[in-house]
Design a binder for these strands. Structure first.
Lengths: 126, 126
DNA sequence: CAGTATCCAATATGATACTG
DNA sequence: CAGTATCATATTGGATACTG
């Protein structure tokens, strides 16, 4: 597995490269919420549990720099900013789903019924 | 996406959980080399470019604790230690391959022919 | 051979306060 | 509304030396 350099950054292998794009704690939660429709900054913030403004801003900046997410600013007062998946972002959603399904399977083998957690979450209103 | 707790550790979503198992810089290189056959500590160390003893030891410990890799020690002098994939480790290899294929595709779109890099590496002897 | 131990730098994340 | 700025802590990774 030879090293690869892109934009002066080194990757040890192709998996390493993908995990730079979608890895870390906060990028997947953002991508996952944008998969159905575009969202505003505040919508993402309200929708992603535990995320801080700092981490949301950082995740969005990196996703935009890597071409997975686009940002559209409307020059209104107060400003309106819309984040959406790019073609590259859309391309990566099936991979996220695949990893997610593995996770749900592994959780099941650890005795955690994730689908049930989801259903209970929806029953309690949020 | 509700939080999940396993062994007192919190995960924000199933992808987060999978990336705890195989994420980081060094776990995939280890898993990838064990996919064909078991290897000794020193074989892994020699085979994985840039890895330090500290990081190899840490990756192996975590992979073992998470049940992806098994460790067999032969009480000889000097000691012989064999690392192998468990059933759970084998189960995750196709996922690693899927992520890897996405990486190779994305690299191609960034103008990097990874398969060609592999071929050149083999021609030059290593 | 198969690791430990120690020191150090860089990065990730969180908490809080502030702003055009 | 959509962020920045600052401070603090925890984790990651590298370098080097040492050991049963």
């Amino acid at each position: 597995m030879p090293d690869v350099f892109i934009h002066n950054q080194r990757f040890y292998n192709p998996v390493d490269y993908v995990l730079q794009l979608i890895g870390g704690t906060w990028k997947v939660p953002v991508l996952w919420r944008l998969r159905k429709r575009s969202l505003r900054y505040t919508e993402l913030e309200k929708d992603i549990p535990h995320i801080s403004q700092k981490m949301l801003t950082k995740a969005l900046k990196e996703l935009e720099a890597d071409g997975l997410v686009s940002k559209t600013t409307f020059a209104e007062v107060p400003p309106r900013v819309i984040y959406a998946l790019t073609e590259k972002g859309v391309y990566l959603i099936p991979l996220v789903e695949t990893i997610r399904n593995y996770g749900i399977e592994l959780l099941k083998e650890s005795g955690v019924d994730y689908d049930k957690l989801i259903r209970e979450e929806q029953k309690t209103g949020k």
